[in-house]
């Protein structure tokens, strides 16, 4: 019961309360680039959710078994090589390069997959699918997982990592779809000439982020309420 409520909390927190785009300001590039049409924005959100889940799965596995301090595989390999099995091997210096490597490879993989099975989607993504490679929302999710795997008191399992990733992806989809809806309405508006285009888009994004600030602290309140319920 407790794990389920913890998972729901992680999911809700990543999706709405601490939304990746509107709270942490990561993944802004596709957020502004592909938010002109609702259909495309939604597709982009789904693609990011897909990639972020794969990347989270892989990065959790790499971090848990290889990268974190005292991870099982390097310790055993070191013991095999004749070293002292008691030494704590810490490969977390490799985290960034491995995450980028994993994200880039999985984006490449997804691109080939989409090109083969969803050619229309592939065409409408254009340059933005390869751009997911440098989408900081995904790297952010990986680093968040790393942070929780370095804390031995509260070690995240795979399900928690996936809850964060899927929640983050869905939060990204919500944010980019909201933004696309607003921008479709904006096309009908009489915007001052100097603000047309990116200027008004950034203003609207800022107002949207401010609106989402209203959720701040809800996760702590929810946690307290759940703790009280279980007592």
């Amino acid at each position: 019961m407790e794990t389920v409520s913890a998972l729901v909390l992680i999911f809700l927190s990543a999706a709405i309360i601490n939304n990746f785009v509107l709270y942490y300001f990561v993944g802004i590039c596709p957020f502004l680039g592909v938010s002109r049409k609702i259909g495309m924005a939604f597709g982009m959100g789904l693609a990011v959710t897909f990639v972020i889940s794969i990347a989270a799965f892989l990065s959790w596995a790499f971090t848990f078994y290889i990268l974190r301090a005292g991870a099982p595989i390097p310790t055993q390999v070191w013991a095999l090589l004749g070293g002292d099995p008691e030494t704590t091997v810490d490969l977390s210096v490799l985290s960034y390069i491995i995450y980028i490597f994993v994200i880039a490879s999985s984006v490449q993989f997804v691109e080939m997959y989409v090109r083969k099975f969803f050619p229309a989607l592939y065409k409408s993504f254009g340059v933005f699918l390869p751009l997911i490679t440098t989408n900081c929302a995904i790297l952010f999710a990986c680093l968040e997982i790393l942070k929780h795997l370095q804390d031995p008191m509260n070690l995240w399992g795979l399900h928690e990592a996936l809850a964060l990733a899927i929640g983050g992806g869905i939060g990204f989809t919500i944010a980019i779809s909201l933004m696309a809806g607003l921008r479709e309405e904006l096309d009908m508006c009489d915007v001052p000439k100097a603000l047309r285009g990116t200027g008004i888009a950034l203003l609207v994004a800022g107002i949207l982020a401010m609106a989402f600030m209203g959720f701040t602290g809800v996760d702590k309140g929810l946690a307290n309420a759940l703790a009280m319920l279980s007592n």
Binding site: I66, P74, V77, W78, L81, G83, V89, L91, L94, I98
Partner: peptide, 10 residues
């Protein structure tokens, strides 16, 4: 140790 293992892993 870190160097050798990092090279191996990568």
């Amino acid at each position: 140790i870190t160097l050798i293992l990092a090279a191996l892993v990568l």
